[in-house]
Amino acid sequence: MLATQKLPTAHQRRGGCPAGSQRATRARCVRVMAAHPAAYAWIEEHLGSKVVKESLVSSSGWSSAYVVDTQDGKRYFVKTALGRDEAMFKGEALGLQAMYDTNTMRIPKVFHYGPLAGAGRGGSFIVMEHLDMARGRLAMRELGRRLALMHLAVPKEEHAAAGQFGFPVDNTIGGTPQANGWMSDWVVFLRDRRLMPQLKMAGDSRLMRMGEKLCSNLSSHFEGIEVKPSILHGDLWSGNIGAVGEEPTIFDPACYYGHHEAEFGMSWCAGFSPDFYAAYHELIPCAPGFEQRAEIYRLYHYLNHLNLFGDSYYSQCASILQRLT
């Protein structure tokens, strides 16, 4: 939830913005292994070297992240989540792979995800490639160009290739479940898989009344445009963006196949520059009604922040709904 580009290892947080009430944990090296030993046992058995050090780089309400050094000089990125089964990291792993398969962005390679065997209240972990972003130079124009290429990539997933919206598994947006069951109609998907679940979770009668009114007229915002499934990062804000050398990278996704414009739902804390948008729209021209749809996509993420962090996000949700209805 906090900006991470200044840390040596940035790919560690899920869903959110610096304004959220997320707790930051300063990176520190520890000799006693604080993460669950099952994760390190897997590394030692399958990647061939003993874990000698870890650095805790973040901690949230749903996961903790570590940089792990092994005896043979290799480095890995490990995330653990106590009390959550492996479905959360399965969604992350499949999302990273889907973006990786487009050959457009520098995406960390996933080695393994699985349950934390022996954890008292259950849990899961994921092991992936460590990306050194300490000396990376992020160019916004190149990020915009690469993101457009990712959105234009022909999906390898058969349902998406056939024009359906969703993802092979449900995943999470921050700590919130995100349903991804396949649908052929984007407007119905947006209503039933995104907006309405968040409105119901908020449990506020005023927001629900305005939300139902918006949803009843949602199709009017998509008249005259063609929506095709693109692989979306799904949670693209500044803390999930970095660079390895000169190459942009994105990580900590909440992936699904959806309308490419939905990628900008977190633009309010992404720091995208005019150069970014110019490069993006050179490849994917801005369609009529973009600004109104952008409000709808921002609403989804503001509602999620309301549900995760509380009433400080209520006014943004209400204001967007008032403007749209």
Rank of each mutant, 00 (worst) to 15 (best):
A243G: 00
G271M: 11
Y277M: 10
R137S: 01
G120H: 10
V127G: 04
L56T: 10
F89E: 08
E157Q: 14
A24C: 11
H301L: 02
A98G: 14
G211H: 03
G174R: 14
Y277G: 13
H233Q: 12
L116P: 04
P168N: 14
R193T: 05
K200P: 04
E44P: 09
L147R: 04
L82C: 09
Y257F: 12
K90I: 00
D275Q: 15
P285Y: 01
H159F: 10
A38D: 09
I320E: 03
W182R: 13
R28I: 09
M133T: 15
E92H: 09
R194M: 05
S63E: 05
Y314E: 01
F290L: 07
Y40R: 08
L82A: 11
P155F: 07
R23A: 11
V57R: 02
H305Q: 11
F89N: 05
R121Q: 11
V110A: 04
A87N: 11
V78C: 06
R323Q: 12
D132H: 10
S238W: 13
K74P: 00
I250S: 04
R191G: 01
V57P: 12
A38T: 14
A294G: 09
L308S: 04
P285R: 00
Y257I: 01
Q198H: 00
L143G: 08
S21P: 10
W62D: 05
L147P: 00
V30M: 05
D85L: 03
R191W: 00
T176L: 04
A98R: 12
I296F: 10
K53E: 15
Y113M: 02
T25D: 11
K50C: 03
A153V: 01
L306E: 01
M196D: 09
N217Q: 08
I284K: 13
R193A: 13
S273H: 08
E92S: 03
F165P: 04
L147T: 05
V244E: 14
G73L: 13
H36D: 15
A318F: 05
G289W: 00
I241H: 13
G122H: 07
D192Q: 14
D275P: 08
M1N: 06
C215F: 01
G163R: 10
G136C: 11
T4L: 06
G271P: 07
W186V: 06
Q178V: 02
R145I: 02
K74C: 09
F290I: 02
A81I: 04
R191D: 03
Y302E: 02
I231R: 10
G163Q: 07
V67R: 15
L218D: 07
P285Q: 01
L96H: 14
V169M: 07
Y76L: 03
G83F: 06
L149F: 02
P274A: 02
L7M: 12
D311F: 03
G136K: 15
A153T: 02
C317M: 07
S59T: 12
M266G: 01
P253H: 09
L303W: 07
E261K: 00
S216G: 15
A278T: 12
C269E: 12
F290N: 10
E54V: 14
G289T: 07
P155C: 11
Y257N: 07
L138P: 11
V30E: 14
A278W: 07
E157V: 01
D170P: 13
L299A: 06
